[in-house]
């Protein structure tokens, strides 16, 4: 075997797995998005019908698509930012704790991360329940004056958090940030542990403030970590489905759909419309690919420079 071929041979098993499990379904999905696929097609008693761009034109005419797109993007932007800020802050904090204490805190926050998505949704749905929820109860405990001053109202009895799209998304942001910041925190901590202590000592000798140290030493050194975490968070937050499904009590409230839930409702609720469901999924995939490609380029560029 010529030596140049070794990398390729080593790559083959991985490529085969990706091709079988990812590429083939992706091609299938794109094909389906140009077809009308009813249950009868899935049952094998009818042939899929080519409809050209009809699934897409119908989709772009649909108000629900545009509100879903808006919900998806705004949610991802807010959640990614909050997750990274909170995660980094906690990571830096963990680095200053003693070994035993930081292990303790890590176990604590990682258990939030380990909660399965449906359970996350259930937990927060109960917390924000209009009548039995602890949030409304706690807001009512605030002194009336303070509550009115800060939040604009004193009485929170039976406040229906999960009706209106925007308040559902407040709860969803909390749910997802709560469950995903620990991963960022621990990754940042791992990165921080790798930065030589001499740099910080030198900074201290030079009289640098903590903020300055973070900006001039920590952040540049951890930039690759942040780049990866940002991409991952974007991918994860664009795809949120289970938590939203649980918070909304199923796909009924269409104003609060995001693209994933919209795609799911189209493709799998009776009568299933796999074609338009696939079209939504294609749009979501393209958005994600563009965003990811952009960030990956940035990342590669930076590494070339350093």
């Amino acid at each position: 075997m010529p030596s140049w071929s070794i990398p390729y041979v080593l790559l083959v098993p991985g490529i085969l797995v990706i091709a079988g499990l990812l590429l083939y379904p992706m091609i299938q999905m794109v094909t389906m998005s140009f077809q009308s696929i009813s249950l009868r097609v899935i049952r094998g008693v009818a042939e899929p019908k080519w409809v050209g761009l009809e699934n897409y034109t119908k989709l772009f005419d649909n108000d629900i698509f545009w509100s879903s797109l808006r919900n998806t993007i705004v949610f991802a932007a807010v959640t990614v930012a909050l997750t990274l800020i909170l995660g980094t802050a906690v990571g830096v904090l963990l680095n200053r704790l003693s070994r035993r204490m930081s292990t303790f805190v890590i176990i604590g926050i990682m258990s939030a991360w380990a909660v399965p998505p449906v359970a996350q949704g259930t937990i927060w749905r109960w917390l924000f329940d209009a009548e039995a929820g602890i949030i409304n109860w706690a807001l009512n405990l605030l002194p009336d004056g303070l509550s009115t001053l800060v939040l604009g109202r004193a009485d929170w009895t039976a406040q229906p958090w999960l009706n209106d799209a925007w308040s559902v998304y407040i709860v969803l942001v909390l749910t997802v940030v709560w469950a995903s910041f620990p991963f960022v925190a621990v990754s940042v901590l791992a990165g921080l542990r790798g930065i030589p202590a001499e740099l910080y000592e030198a900074a201290r000798v030079d009289g640098s403030t903590p903020w300055h140290t973070f900006r001039k030493i920590t952040f540049p050194l951890l930039k690759p970590v942040f780049a990866v975490l940002t991409i991952l968070s974007i991918i994860w937050d664009f795809k949120v489905l289970s938590q939203l499904y649980v918070l909304l009590n199923g796909p009924t409230n269409r104003e609060a759909f995001n693209l994933s839930l919209f795609s799911f409702a189209e493709a799998f609720k009776a009568p299933p419309k796999m074609g338009s469901g696939a079209a939504i999924a294609v749009v979501l995939t393209i958005i994600l690919l563009v965003v990811t490609a952009f960030y990956t380029r940035q990342m590669v560029k930076q590494e070339d420079l350093t």
């Binding site: 998505p117 991963f183 990754s187 791992a190 990165g191 790798g194 930065i195 050194l221 951890l222 930039k223 690759p224 970590v225 780049a227 990866v228 975490l229 991952l232 590494e303 350093t306």
Partner: peptide, 23 residues
Amino acid sequence: MRIAKITATTVTTAALALGLAAC
């Protein structure tokens, strides 16, 4: 930059593995 790079790779690998498990 070696350490940061390794961290980045580790993070990615771990995340991909977890992502797959979740799917």
